[in-house]
């Protein structure tokens, strides 16, 4: 699939995640029944346009609740999304992934991190996942309630999709901004600058949702496969992969976001992708 077609699908998905555009003017969040459901991508439920619940925010909200330390419903939903699609969600459906893709199109110099540093930083998303699962359960206040630490101190999607629009349109929110918002703006600016220079730094290094979906890549119904008989080992697929995947050796890597870029450049059409791909 051509990359512009993928971007069209990403745009439609971003709109389906956030269809209530008029709420951006009123500074309110949608309060309909669809908010019982988690969406597949990282999309803040405090985004005025959001139709559903953010899976990472929901996971932390339930884990941090006074009566629970485990979230069966949200974890089951994430597991189901992951086992059906894997990181196809990152490549095609996630609104924050789309934002990073667009930022990376800004024509500035694109440096690459030293390989050792890049590999080390990629562990960051697993630490973020551990923080999401553990911190709200163990670091609780006097009422037994744990804060959503990832959302509170890290998540740039919440600042971009929720914080900034609400601060613009909602006077009460604007009046309550303080040090925490300043910190979250610093994180957001760092991710924006990083996304212009590097390809999808948040997905590679920080996203706990991508970490779960990545671990499910090899089990997912959506698959990518290399036809070993057709492959001429030209290496074009690996040269073009911005996620650093060794395509012919590690097609179901935890890092592959199923963007189809490798498939597009393959001269012998040896790479196949989709549901129920035959060997």
């Amino acid at each position: 699939m051509k990359q512009w077609k993928r971007h069209m699908i990403q745009a439609v998905s971003a709109l389906l995640h956030n269809p209530y555009l008029s709420n951006f003017l009123t500074g309110r969040v949608h309060r309909g029944k669809t908010k019982h459901l988690c969406v597949p991508g990282l999309n803040c439920y405090s985004c005025p346009g959001a139709a559903g619940a953010c899976p990472i925010g929901s996971l932390q909200a339930v884990i941090g609740a006074r009566t629970k330390n485990v979230s069966y419903y949200v974890f089951g939903t994430i597991l189901l999304f992951g086992v059906l699609f894997g990181r196809f969600i990152c490549g095609f459906l996630c609104p924050f992934g789309f934002v990073q893709d667009l930022l990376h199109k800004i024509p500035l110099s694109k440096p690459s991190l030293p390989k050792r540093l890049d590999k080390t930083l990629r562990w960051g998303k697993y630490f973020a996942l551990a923080a999401v699962l553990i911190l709200p359960a163990v670091l609780t206040d006097s009422y037994g309630i744990g804060a959503p630490f990832f959302c509170k101190y890290v998540c740039p999607a919440g600042t971009l999709e929720g914080g900034i629009p609400l601060a613009i349109a909602n006077e009460a929110v604007r009046g309550a901004l303080g040090l925490l918002f300043s910190w979250k703006m610093v994180v957001l600016i760092a991710v924006i600058v990083g996304s212009v220079l590097l390809y999808r730094p948040f997905c590679k290094y920080l996203c706990p949702l991508g970490a779960i979906y990545g671990l499910l890549n090899r089990f997912s119904v959506y698959q990518m496969k290399v036809d070993e008989n057709a492959c001429v080992h030209c290496g074009k697929c690996e040269q073009v992969c911005k996620m650093g995947v060794n395509v012919t050796q590690d097609m179901n890597s935890t890092e592959c976001i199923r963007c189809d870029h490798c498939k597009t450049v393959c001269p012998t059409h040896a790479i196949k992708s989709g549901f129920f791909v035959k060997d």
Partner: peptide, 17 residues
């Protein structure tokens, strides 16, 4: 529980709480 969290502005998420 998810619904209750999602239909109200999450102050932590937007950097206020």
């Amino acid at each position: 529980e998810v619904f209750q969290k999602a239909v109200n502005i999450c102050l932590e998420c937007i950097g206020v709480g």
